[in-house]
Simulated scan of single mutants.
Amino acid sequence: MVEAIKLWNEPNNMSHWDFDVDKGWALFSNMAKLAGAAVKAERPYLPRVLGGMSPIDPGFLRNLEGQGVLEHVDVVAIHGFPLDWNHWQLDEWPARYREIQSMVRHPVWITEVGVSTFGAEEVQEFGLRRTAELLLNLAPRVHWYSLYDLPRAWPATTRHREAEGSSYYRHFYMGLLREDGTPKKALRHFADYTPKMGICQWFHFEDPRLDEAVSWLKKLGVKKLRTGLSWADSFRPNADAWFDRQMTALEDFDVTLTFCFTPEHRGHRPHHTSPPLRAEEFADFCVRMTRRYA
């Protein structure tokens, strides 16, 4: 069921990696190389995906290449949200994709793309159709973000409300379903693009939406699913039981499984975006989860 392992998420975005602590990404590069080598030793033929760039930045990719990271991954991933966060237009997607593809010998996957309903549901409806037209025949993997809106009672811990203004609130409206599980207008079109288009859906620890999400994914004809297991959550009581439940529920899908989030007590700073004190500990988590689920 696990078709690929993804090493971290958006490492060039402060919402996921603190590059004030890790200037130049030397700590990230070391961690990614250790984790990539460890996963390959455990499962030699399982593709390893570099955490998706957001924003799409050729300079960042050159930096990691210069530090040897690309020798330890098999796929490069990018994320783009031009109608909500990026400073470029939707129709620029093919050019952005080809720029990255021209730099590497690796396949390039689009592991997050989406449109919020913050202003109007019709914007997402248009954005889904146009994104499919632009990307499904261009990239070998495209994952729509996401199935569900983020519940408003949950803080969007991967965004910075004070700094981002309205962009922070857009993050709560990226789903094809509202937080109460009712469909938005774009949902009626999504099955037109499956199974070629996948979905990225993160599940929180002991997420009550899991079973309903699986039902919707099957109704929509989704085959390719990207989700994650949190290294930070692995220190919670009953973590393995929750991970087992989540992965068992997803066994009918081809899963790209993302490993990320530093436990507060194992970071240079007490935050899930912090570089870990010991990169080997993240690599050990990757191996344990790979052995358990891949």
Rank of each mutant, 00 (worst) to 15 (best):
M1C: 12
A4Y: 09
I5E: 07
K6P: 03
W8S: 09
N9W: 14
N12S: 10
G24S: 03
K33H: 05
L34A: 09
G51V: 02
D57G: 00
G66A: 02
V69T: 13
V69K: 06
V75P: 02
V76Q: 02
V76M: 04
P82A: 04
W88H: 13
Q89L: 13
A95D: 10
R96T: 01
R98M: 08
E99Y: 09
S102L: 03
M103W: 06
E112K: 01
E112P: 10
E112N: 05
V113E: 07
F118N: 01
Q124I: 07
Q124W: 00
E125H: 11
F126I: 01
R130S: 08
N137C: 10
A139H: 11
R152I: 12
W154Q: 15
T157K: 11
T158M: 14
E162F: 14
A163T: 12
G165E: 05
Y168W: 05
H171S: 13
Y173C: 10
G175W: 09
G181S: 06
A186M: 00
A186T: 00
H189S: 05
F190P: 01
A191P: 00
D192K: 05
T194Y: 00
T194C: 01
P195K: 08
G198Y: 08
C200F: 10
W202N: 13
W202C: 12
E206T: 07
R209L: 14
L210W: 04
D211G: 13
L220A: 04
L225C: 06
L229S: 00
F235W: 10
N238H: 15
A239V: 05
D244E: 12
R245I: 09
R245E: 08
T248P: 12
D252L: 09
T256S: 09
T258S: 15
T262N: 11
H265P: 13
H265E: 14
G267V: 06
S274A: 06
R278Y: 13
V287T: 07
R292M: 05
R292I: 11
